[in-house]
Design a protein around this nucleic acid. Structure first.
Lengths: 147, 147
DNA sequence: ACTAAAAACCACTAAAAACCACTTTTCTCC
DNA sequence: GGAGAAAAGTGGTTTTTAGTGGTTTTTAGT
């Protein structure tokens, strides 16, 4: 399970050094073989261990693709999905298209989200955190929650 | 049960010495293994004994995550959640991202809140205390309360 | 004055960032 | 189409910074 967040930096070639602890966790769960793709709701990337991705991929592929929303999800998630392997220094090279999608520059934030990680440009992350509360109805499960 | 508040200081490396009494309480309840995460409504941190966190984490993970409000809570609470252990001197190192979120500098306030503690920058705590009453409707349970 | 806790300080280690050299691919221009 | 130049990718080393563990000094409480 991934939780917690880390500051990470991307070098001038677009390589990202995975923090040592996460590197270890990934080594255990998938031998360092991950899949990175686009998040459909926010301009950030999703990082999955190989098998987690395999399960998700099936679900996505099975979506009814005459529906526009489903088609959008398929195009983005499948279309950006890139399998990557950590190099000897624990780094991955992010493809240019993914860097563009998430507007990644030098300073990034890697955020644990249970079965996956999210990768954000620091600037976008900060503005998301500062954003106002989302509109819309609040599910009972949320109102009842007590931190 | 945690109540009462303490002034605490963070050293130049971002380490926080837990006051002796709380340290003892934590040793009893969780062997010094705690989880620190972000509060979603205020810029402060939440400090949970390990098992308290485990219960909360399940509730959070179970929220309906196609709902924007629920997703925000998940992202912040899970995304910042970091398990920490007190060192031989009763200190914990706060990750940079948590320090940033709660705008922690040298002087902090640690506030007991029953099953957890809140950790505030002294400056933010003081301005929160001085703030005007919040707007909005008051739940019955609050109106019925008699101090 | 004594004790305990907190704060400051110091030395060491590990990880991250920056840097550099080299290879491969892609593009451009002849 | 091929040569050369530029860009992109790869692998590794060095330097710097952050993390760790511990000790000493100061402060505060009894």
């Amino acid at each position: 399970m991934f939780t917690g967040s880390n500051n990470v930096t991307m070098d001038t070639k677009g390589r990202l050094a995975i923090p040592a602890k996460i590197r270890d966790a990934l080594a255990d769960s998938c031998g360092g073989r991950i899949v990175i793709t686009a998040h459909t709701e926010d301009r950030c990337l999703l990082v999955y261990p190989e098998q987690e991705w395999a399960e998700l991929q099936e679900k996505i592929a099975a979506l009814p693709n005459m529906n526009a929303k489903a088609r959008r999800i398929q195009r983005l998630v499948l279309g950006y999905a890139t399998p990557l392997e950590l190099d000897s220094n624990g780094r991955v090279l992010l493809p240019q298209t993914l860097r563009d999608y998430a507007q990644l520059e030098k300073k990034l934030i890697l955020v644990g989200q249970n079965n996956k990680l999210e990768l954000w440009s620091e600037a976008l992350w900060n503005s998301w955190v500062d954003e106002d509360e989302p509109e819309g109805d609040i599910p009972d499960a949320v109102s009842a929650l007590s931190l």
